[in-house]
């Protein structure tokens, strides 16, 4: 039985639904000797900004039960160095790549997106949800407010023809409202969740474990939250969803697909097992064979829900 794993995200055709999440796979080249990158559905790069960013004060990570906190602070080499030094490798790949971008204003987002489009990039992920930087003084990050989400996505949509994936924060009251705003603004897809804002304390020194005090929680600990949000978003928008948050194996990935994700992102698992995403692709195929599913698309959002009281 032939199995079809291909999915479409905006104008991007992916050979399979397994992506590697932003910030967990560098710009691809770093994993060249460890992973057969061309087998991945797509790479989402580490977020880049117009100008280089030094990142946050160490310590930047802390381990927590079934998870990790990070406060990297979007350290990156800036768009021009990215274009000069990182982009050519990504272009040699026989798999899709999506450039994650961030800015402090909607204009910065669109300027960066346009610059990348001119360099031959086909898709961007708008990181409007990093919990570790202050996008605008004293304000919430863009994705914590429906109007700001709309404004950023709209601005990029107006200025480019790129496939736009908008990355959403779980640190919100109502994910459907934000998801709808991004869809209305013209986002081709949504990716969720970014990390959950958290912290950890050393009780001997009474100091936070992270140099930036708070950080974003990822790993298996956040999976139930991510799954719930995918399901809620799936019930509110029609655009495809890239589900991520604590996926460690194929079973986790399939839960996301059943709950509504058209594709899934592997994040923290890459740190523990660089080949996690490849193993997950294999596991999804096996599940499909066992359950006589020919096309992965027919599995998306097939959750059978009991009636709630």
């Amino acid at each position: 039985m032939g199995i079809s794993l291909s999915v479409k995200i905006g104008k991007l055709s992916l050979k399979n639904p397994v992506l590697v999440a932003s910030g967990t796979f560098g710009y691809g080249e770093e994993y060249k000797g460890l992973v057969d990158i061309n087998k991945l559905g797509a790479i989402i790069t580490k977020t880049i900004t117009l100008k280089p960013k030094a990142g946050n004060k160490p310590p930047r990570i802390a381990e927590t039960p079934q998870g990790m906190l990070n406060s990297i602070g979007l350290e990156n080499c800036g768009s021009e160095t990215f274009i000069k030094e990182k982009l050519s490798f990504l272009k040699t790949l026989k798999t899709a790549f999506i450039v994650s971008i961030a800015g402090y204003t909607k204009e910065e987002f669109s300027k960066l997106a346009k610059r990348l489009e001119d360099e031959g990039v086909k898709a961007v992920e708008l990181n409007i949800s990093c919990p570790n930087i202050e996008y605008r003084k004293g304000k919430l990050n863009f994705s914590q407010d429906a109007k700001s989400t709309y404004a950023v996505v709209r601005q990029v949509k107006k200025s480019t023809r790129l496939t736009i994936i908008t990355k959403l924060s779980p640190n919100v009251t109502d994910i459907s409202e934000i998801a709808k705003a991004a869809e209305e603004a013209g986002s081709d897809a949504l990716s969720l969740i970014n990390t959950l804002l958290g912290m950890a304390v050393n009780i001997s020194t009474r100091t936070p474990l992270l140099g930036n005090i708070t950080g974003g929680l990822s790993g298996p600990a956040v999976k139930p939250v991510a799954l719930r949000m995918i399901w809620e978003a799936y019930n509110s928008v029609k655009i495809p969803l890239v589900g991520m948050g604590g996926i460690m194996d194929a079973s986790d990935a399939i839960e996301f697909i059943i709950s509504g994700a058209a594709a899934i992102g592997i994040g923290t698992a890459n740190f523990i097992n660089p080949e996690a995403s490849l193993e997950i692709i294999g596991g999804i195929k096996k599940y499909m064979k066992e359950n006589k599913i020919k096309n992965v698309k027919s599995l998306i959002g097939t959750l059978k829900c009991p009636t709630r009281n």
Binding site: G23, G26, E30, P58, I61, I72, E75
Partner: peptide, 20 residues
């Protein structure tokens, strides 16, 4: 504390005279 070990997570940064 080292997460990835391959230079992608940028978690094990130390402050040096030439940046992190």
């Amino acid at each position: 504390l080292i997460a990835c070990g391959v230079g992608v997570c940028l978690g094990c940064a130390v402050n040096t005279k030439s940046g992190y």
